[in-house]
């Protein structure tokens, strides 16, 4: 119980968040918009106390707030929107906002790849399916959320796990052997020691790199993917290949008369 109380700065805003999203989920009748947005706003503000990035120049900070607010707002709008076409568009907005966050964190390739894959292909496919399926107008299951209570609790459990881990990454001082942390808060930059020693992911120590300046460049991404994390990348590739084969095996054949 004590350990739970220690995490009150996480649990209380999350509980507020659950309430906010639960109130906003689509249902019959009116939804308490104002109360829910107040709850959500206070939850976000409470969380920012612990998860604020180190302040840099005002352009960076302003852009961070713009993209972060866009991502959170679009995310909430996406799950509370009762029109599936709008929900898919809000999902595209979430993706674009998160890509903006990637960009200001010097990961342009990740941003571009996410835009191509998610905003450019997956959401387009969603829209495609929704437009084909929605020709008779909105159906009952669009107007009402299915099990709103369980869904919001489960979603926020996941969020709680993520935030707990993040807090361990950024909040506690990270000590890399033989090197004093240069800034007082080396936040969200270096993984903690037990992550570094994970046999599946061996990021090379910085000093071994041939050139120091490849952080954020395509060469850096390539070297990291096919050097440091080769095992994980190959594993992911194999899983995707199996999934592709499975999808082909599941899909109906022309000879079976469908399509």
């Amino acid at each position: 119980m004590n350990s739970l109380l220690e995490q009150i700065h996480l649990l209380a805003p999350l509980a507020l968040g659950i309430i906010a999203v639960w109130m906003l989920l689509p249902r019959e009748g009116a939804r308490p918009w104002i109360l829910a947005s107040l709850c959500g706003l206070s939850a976000v503000l409470w969380l920012t106390k612990n998860f604020l990035p180190p302040a840099e120049d005002w352009v960076q900070t302003g852009m961070f707030y713009a993209f972060a607010a866009g991502a959170v707002l679009s995310g909430v709008m996406m799950i509370t929107e009762s029109n599936p076409v709008y929900a898919a568009l809000w999902f595209a907005m979430v993706t674009l906002s998160v890509c903006g966050l990637f960009l200001i964190n010097a990961a342009p390739f990740l941003a571009a790849a996410t835009v191509v894959v998610y905003a450019g292909a997956i959401v387009v496919t969603f829209l495609f399916v929704i437009m084909l399926a929605q020709q008779g107008g909105a159906t009952g299951y669009d107007r009402k959320a299915f099990q709103p209570t369980l869904a919001s609790i489960a979603g926020f459990m996941l969020l709680a796990c993520l935030l707990f881990t993040l807090q361990e990454w950024g909040g506690k001082a990270v000590v890399v052997e033989g090197e004093e942390p240069k800034t007082p808060r080396p936040q969200f930059v270096l993984p903690p020691a037990h992550m570094v020693t994970n046999p599946l992911s061996h990021p090379m120590p910085r000093s071994d790199r041939p050139d120091q300046n490849d952080l954020g460049t395509l060469q850096g991404v390539g070297r990291s993917l096919f050097g440091d994390y080769l095992f994980a990348v190959e594993l992911a590739g194999t899983v995707l290949l199996i999934a592709t084969i499975g999808a082909i095996a599941l899909s109906p054949r022309r000879s079976q008369g469908t399509l």
Partner: peptide, 25 residues
């Protein structure tokens, strides 16, 4: 000096399909 170059172009132009989808829908 954009290191991404052609990937950036692919990313941006892949969003152009939204204009047609939204306009049509």
């Amino acid at each position: 000096g954009v290191d991404l170059g052609i990937v950036f172009i692919f990313a941006v132009t892949s969003l152009a399909v939204y204009s047609i989808i939204l306009g049509g829908w």
